[in-house]
Structure formats: C-alpha cells, structure tokens
C-alpha cells in the first residue's frame, strides 16, 4: 500500500511538472476552467435575481450545495476522470499492455494523466462555498462542524465509484460510456440544486439507484438545520459514510468483473 502510494505520488508529480512547463498555457487553461465552470453559478445568480427562495432554499443555501458539489466533483474528476479514456484504450488494444504490467489496471488507467487545470473549476467551487458560509447563518455545533469537515471523505468516493461503474460498461459496449457519463456530469448539475426541485423519478433514482443524494444533499440538510420536504427519516442525514463504503466495494467488484470479461480487440 505504501509502495503504491509512493508510485502514485511519483507519477503524478511527473505529470504535474510536465503541465507546468508552459506557464502561459497553464495559466490560460486554469482561467478557462474557472470561467467555464462559473457559467453554472451565473445561472444560479440570474435565478435569484428573480426570487428570494428557490424551493424554500436561499441563495446562500443553494450556494452551499453548489460549492460542496463542485469541489467534490472536481476532485473526483482529477482523481479518476481519466477513466473516460478507457473506451479509447480498449478500441486501440492498448488495454492489453495495461494488463501485463505488474500494477492494478484501475490504478494504471486513473494515473494516465493529472488534469491540473481542473483546479480552476475547483477554485470556482471553493469561492462559491466561501460565499455560502458568509451568507448563511449556520448555527454551528460540534456535530455540524464534524459533518462539514468530513464531507470530502464520502462525497469524493461516491462520485468516483459512480465513475468506475460507468466506465466498466466500456468492456461490453464501447459507446455506452457516453450515455453513462451523463450520470457523472448530470450528477454534478443535479447536486448543485435542492433535490426537491427535480421530478419524483429523478429523486428516487438518486436516492435508491445512483445514490448521489448522499454526496451533499442529505448531509447539508443536517448542517444547515433544514427540514426535509421529502420526509426521509432523520438517520438518512448521517448515512453517507455507509453509502460510500458500500458503493466503493460494489464498484470494485463490478470493475474486477469487467476486467475478467475483457476480450482484446486483437489489433
């Protein structure tokens, strides 16, 4: 485990140094990532120019959801976003090479690149989150501080597990990946807003099937001290760590199953 970590740090440091070689390009890409992601928050601002509450949530409270969602998603993307390249690896036959190396296949795929520029979008999320803290009057208790600080511990693995499960589909149908990507990228949009905004079928989907509601929605209800209009029992607000553990185990199983069923293209 320690070996693996040291290899990871080595590879990532090399990839980072490579990207920092061209300073101007790198800065422009950071600014690009920041501004493109900011268009999402611009939408929130325009909406709140017309009303004080969206489905009972204030601007500060929506910004809280938005910030926690954005930061977690961007970090997951930096960690495992390279899985989007899996169909390319399979089509080209390069995945064969991955399998003969003495390291886990998943480990090798996620270390293909380290997209440093995504820290632009992450920074945008962090800025919105700071705004949320300034604009909401949270009644801080030890419990709330604890839940907030622990949020990355489950939110990143939940997003990452969904990514892994989606990518595994590429072992059977190369094109399915784009549709399943929707769950990750659509999930990012979805988790920016209060869950009750969306239709009942979407709510059920993200609570029971693809449990994105546990990324930030349920924990935020607890931190912000808001009642749940969906009427979920109280313990659900603290269920996120359990959901994350189950999801990581399931995603790992599904990935291994996919790798075992991999058939080379032969090219």
């Amino acid at each position: 485990m320690a070996d693996l970590l040291s290899i990871y740090v080595h590879i990532m440091a090399a990839r980072m140094r490579a990207q920092l070689q061209y300073r101007v390009s790198f800065v422009l890409q950071l600014v690009g990532s920041f501004s493109l992601s900011f268009t999402d928050f611009a939408v929130v601002l325009v909406i709140f120019a017309h009303l004080p509450y969206l489905a009972g949530w204030s601007l500060g409270e929506v910004a809280f959801l938005y910030g926690t969602s954005y930061m977690a998603f961007q970090l997951s993307d930096i960690a495992v976003g390279q899985l989007d390249q899996l169909p390319v690896l399979i089509q080209s036959g390069d995945f064969d090479m991955v399998l003969i190396r003495p390291l886990g296949a998943l480990f090798q795929v996620v270390t293909l690149d380290f997209t440093l520029r995504r820290f632009g979008a992450f920074g945008q999320g962090a800025l919105v989150f700071a705004l949320a803290l300034a604009r909401t009057d949270i009644h801080w208790t030890a419990g709330r501080v604890l839940v907030l600080t622990l949020m990355p511990v489950w939110s990143i693995p939940i997003f990452a597990s969904v990514w892994v499960v989606g990518a595994t589909s590429a072992f059977w149908a190369v094109r399915s990946m784009e549709v399943i990507n929707l769950v990750t990228h659509g999930g990012q949009l979805l988790t920016q807003y209060p869950l009750q905004v969306f239709g009942a079928w979407i709510q059920r989907l993200v609570i029971f099937v693809v449990p994105l509601a546990f990324v930030n929605y349920f924990p935020s209800l607890y931190v912000l001290g808001k009642p749940d209009p969906l009427g979920a029992p109280e313990f659900v607000r603290f269920a996120s760590p359990v959901v994350a553990i189950v999801l990581v185990v399931v995603a790992g199983r599904i990935w291994n199953f996919g790798v075992r069923h991999y058939r080379s293209t032969g090219s």
Binding site: Y22, V24, S25, F26, V27, L28, Q29, L30, V31, G32, S33, S35, L36
Partner: peptide
C-alpha cells in the same frame, strides 16, 4: 502555443 486555454475562455 496552446489554443485550448483561449478556446475554453
């Protein structure tokens, strides 16, 4: 040298 940054902006 790199058009992607300007492109994304």
């Amino acid at each position: 040298l790199d058009y992607r940054g300007v492109g994304t902006i």
